[in-house]
Design a protein around this nucleic acid. Sequence first.
DNA 1: CACTGATGTAAAATAAACTTTACATTTGGA
DNA 2: TCCAAATGTAAAGTTTATTTTACATCAGTG
Lengths: 66, 66
Amino acid sequence: MKNNIKIQRAMHNMTQAELAEKVQVSRQTINAIEAEKYSPSLVLGLKIARVFSKAVDEIFELEEGE
Amino acid sequence: MKNNIKIQRAMHNMTQAELAEKVQVSRQTINAIEAEKYSPSLVLGLKIARVFSKAVDEIFELEEGE
DNA sequence: CACTGATGTAAAATAAACTTTACATTTGGA
DNA sequence: TCCAAATGTAAAGTTTATTTTACATCAGTG
């Protein structure tokens, strides 16, 4: 799972902690997702997309063979 | 998490087992998701959307307060 | 330099997704 | 009615996401 959350945050001038609060997860969770340590739940994916007013598909993308 | 997988399957004339195989999960997982026993991972959500050539947002929707 | 806010990371614990096996129920067609 | 395919469901087990606590680093600012 690739994602461009970091870029979206930059465009919205938003910190990891702020995003975390908006979608009600811990800051570490956002950090881990950005670092691609694991991929989020669909609920979280939808919430993050909503924060940035984007479709899920515009933020998250499957990788080869995934 | 609401979803319209059952409808999508009907439109594509596809069985739970067939969908399960296409996205590489067990049939029970598809069944559980349709029955909204739990919501899928984002990876699985993206795969399912891909099977039906739809955006994730067209198949899955957050519920009130979620 | 000292301080602060933002980020990276890690280990242990909990919660949630997913699998496997197995069986019951429903439904449509021969 | 009988059969088979499709669906529903359940319990136990494994894997993965997420939390909590805690600390380390880094960049900019006083």
